[in-house]
Design a protein around this nucleic acid. Sequence first.
DNA 1: TCATAAAATTTGGGATGCCAAATAAAATAA
DNA 2: TTATTTTATTTGGCATCCCAAATTTTATGA
Lengths: 220, 220
Amino acid sequence: MQHFTHHSEENYLKTLYKLENGKVKKVNNIALSKALELNPATVLEMVRKMAERQLVELLADKTIQLTDKGRKKALQIIRKHRLWEVFLVDKLNYKWNEVHDLAEQLEHIESDDLIQRLEAFLGFPSVDPHGDPIPDEHGKLKKIKTQPLSDAPIKKKVTVASLANSSNEFLKYLDKAGISIGDKLEVLEVEAFDGSMKVLHKKSSITLSNEAASNILVVV
Amino acid sequence: MQHFTHHSEENYLKTLYKLENGKVKKVNNIALSKALELNPATVLEMVRKMAERQLVELLADKTIQLTDKGRKKALQIIRKHRLWEVFLVDKLNYKWNEVHDLAEQLEHIESDDLIQRLEAFLGFPSVDPHGDPIPDEHGKLKKIKTQPLSDAPIKKKVTVASLANSSNEFLKYLDKAGISIGDKLEVLEVEAFDGSMKVLHKKSSITLSNEAASNILVVV
DNA sequence: TCATAAAATTTGGGATGCCAAATAAAATAA
DNA sequence: TTATTTTATTTGGCATCCCAAATTTTATGA
Ligand SMILES: [Mn+2]
Ligand SMILES: [Mn+2]
Ligand SMILES: [Mn+2]
Ligand SMILES: [Mn+2]
């Protein structure tokens, strides 16, 4: 009856992947500890075990780096996480800001077959409810070239593709503003003073702070 | 990032519930150990912890008994297990003999809200794919009065309601025979020698051993 | 360079769950 | 009633993850 082994390891892999593909390329023990909200001693111990299992490498300069094997595993977890998020939103009518914690649990269910069937049941979605791409069964991930709305050309129709920040607060903020993935926007005017902008959205003009606009990723 | 605490405890509760409501009412350490496929030392240790948590009682004669609190928890796990089984069969097209191990994992996902939504999504099923009733959110379980097909009246139309044995072997056997939950049967003739019987099923006569017939539970 | 701050590492524990082997107690059979 | 078997319990360990509190190493800035 016992399974769920190395459950924790999966969280390390996923977090490491996200850090490596985020702003900082070099991930040290402190950064990983903070991201995982765990004690550095704990993380160091685990990273060493994962190095033995060939999932990460500990470089000479103390950088913790995913191996190909580790990256592949990380992408499988991310795939599962995002597919479950689609399930929760599309089938169980959760809102996009409510699904993260549940997906954190569901992503650890062990079965490749289950996830293939789930993917088919959901109609092979290409992105999750937050606009993040879903890796295929081989871990291949198609990256969409997006730019922050704050950098978008003026008077050009753009489409909301994903978010630079998926915090609960920001998701709720966007909900209140009525903005969701796939929406069309058009920057009407940028305020030189604070970078805030007037944007055309569903035929009405709304004002977004620079902070908000820089976290909305769009494709032209 | 959760750690599925007391994940194991849930398996103990469920197994204990099933034993208490099975053939033997008195469950001792050996019986529970065998059912869980764990070492008796392990089980004794855990049972003591669960007694501290008021989930079980250790009677003077060494019987291990669920408390009301423990039974309630057990029924919640069973509810989750069975709802996930319905999901797997109805939505992901699994066969009834393929879902058990997956449900063993899914039943531990922690969220009351999720399970309420799943139940609604599935259309409030009353039984799981094996004909076993699904407890309601309060743990109430409506028992269906069934009898083994081997005890059914002759020449009377009966309906397959559930199974006394849900082993993979038996499920596959029934699949081959084309028998599933909800099917109508009629005992045509019982062989006095070995208790085997000729049964009318979907307009054709089939022969079932006494062993098979006694594991098929029907309602008249 | 030298003091200080930050990061890495070591050490000693803790909780949850699990096992094997030894022993004690109870039940059963001869 | 004894001998044998079964069941219960104790003991010492192991694996996985986690923490706090040193201590050591490394980086940084004055
Ligand atoms: Mn998420
Ligand atoms: Mn997401
Ligand atoms: Mn089952
Ligand atoms: Mn079932």
